[in-house]
């Protein structure tokens, strides 16, 4: 469903992505692993055009786009099929939980308000926040905010959800509630591309793992194979530092 080829990106003199290839099929849950600064987040942001990649191609749903030469209209059209969950939630602070979820539907997609409210409530129910419709982001815990963000992503009925380190900003005791929601989505067949440091999630929930280092993909394989039978020495070392996951 998503095929990226030879994605490159530099910030000034610093090369962040050195020709990354990646492929995600419908229903895949792909975990992108790798040490800090390896370009994971930048890759994800390039796929949703939050950053403009310097070169490469992106194939989405059979359409091919040449990075750096995509029109604003195409970007907007592509974004309507995708959703993004950020590390620091990025909820709209002046909107309630429910408004956060419906805003994109009512304003961005011109959906009927009553219909959007129905979808919004169902999305919030699904992430276990049926008693928090009218709370503002600052009244919610980090875990609750991130679940609102996931509900916001779900409400737009995306074909794929990109997660950018969704649990990295959370207190340890709040990580579980967010991972549980993500796991549930995975079980329901949602296509997900997840940048994460949660080895448990990568191992038990995702079916594919992409390991990145220094702007390159070092390994792209099934998650079982990745954890049980890693080929690259570098990956063995990486797994070892994590304490034999």
């Amino acid at each position: 469903m998503v095929q990226a080829r030879n994605i490159t990106k530099s910030f000034q003199a610093q090369v962040v992505l050195r020709g990354v290839d990646l492929s995600v099929e419908k229903g895949d849950v792909v975990a992108i692993l790798g040490p800090s600064g390896s370009g994971k987040t930048t890759l994800l942001r390039c796929l949703n055009f939050l950053e403009t990649a310097d070169d490469g191609t992106l194939e989405f749903d059979g359409e091919t786009f040449r990075m750096g030469h995509v029109s604003k209209r195409d970007i907007a059209r592509l974004r309507k099929k995708t959703a993004f969950v950020f590390q620091n939630y990025n909820l709209f602070s002046n909107k309630t939980a429910l408004q956060n979820v419906t805003e994109g539907l009512v304003i961005g997609r011109k959906m009927d308000k009553a219909k959007a409210m129905g979808i919004g409530r169902r999305a919030l129910d699904k992430v276990g926040l049926s008693d928090r419709y009218d709370y503002y982001p600052h009244q919610l815990s980090g875990g609750q905010q991130q679940r609102v963000a996931i509900a916001r992503a779900l409400a737009t009925d995306p074909e794929i959800i990109y997660f950018d380190e969704p649990t990295s900003a959370l207190d340890p005791e709040l990580i579980g509630e967010v991972l549980a929601v993500m796991r549930q989505l995975a079980e329901e067949g949602m296509t997900m591309l997840v940048v994460t440091h949660e080895m448990g999630f990568a191992r038990n929930v995702s079916n594919k793992v992409i390991f990145m280092e220094d702007g390159q993909v070092l390994e792209q394989c099934g998650s079982k194979e990745f954890f049980e039978n890693p080929r690259e020495e570098r990956i063995k070392a990486f797994l070892k530092t994590l304490g034999g996951v």
Binding site: L50, F84, F86, N90, E103, G108
Partner: peptide
């Protein structure tokens, strides 16, 4: 106003002007 909220607006399918009017300007 945190720039991330603008990015979030794009990601849920809002245009720049919609994001300004509904999210950024009120704050």
């Amino acid at each position: 106003v945190p720039r991330g909220q603008i990015e979030a607006g794009y990601c849920v399918g809002m245009s720049y002007l919609q994001i300004m009017r509904r999210i950024v300007l009120p704050q």
